[in-house]
Amino acid sequence: MLKVKAGDLDRMGMLFERYNRQLYGFLFHMTYQRELSEDMVQQVFYKMLKYRHTFTGTGEYIHWMYSIARNVLKDHWRKNKQQVQHEGVEAAETIAGGLVPDEAFEKKQAKAELHRAMEKLSESQREILALSRFQELKCQEIAEILGMTEGTVKVRIHRAMQELKSIYVKMER
């Protein structure tokens, strides 16, 4: 990343290749909208390009990327206060009839429902779960991105999981 900072813009292409899917995945699980997530990836990379001189070279490049992504998300939510529009990962749960074996069907159903339950979490709870479960980051990395202690991250993940469970149970009834 220091090379990008020094002005070697071609490096930015390499960084895009390396991180674009990961970043897209994070934004998708935060917004549930594909096209919007793609636009946001573009915004994040534009900001990194424009503000590359502010990257100090201390800490990981990827943490810097997430902090920019979080700002882009905050901006978006400030401007668009309406409910998130869910574009589910799986449209399969709406398939009618017995073509899908029951067990597989139920599994899919559970997955889709859980994903919808996550949507009902607060943004910060959804965020911490997205980072730990979908981005598979270690608690210590999340602590660095969110600027809290590792212990706090662990407690918050646990509370978010408890909350998710209670939402999920209510949905099933």
Partner: peptide, 16 residues
């Protein structure tokens, strides 16, 4: 929680 965590792990992330 473990069970829920495992199910979450199966939620697909679409490709850009």
């Amino acid at each position: 929680l473990q069970q829920m965590w495992d199910t979450m792990g199966q939620i697909e992330t679409p490709e850009p």
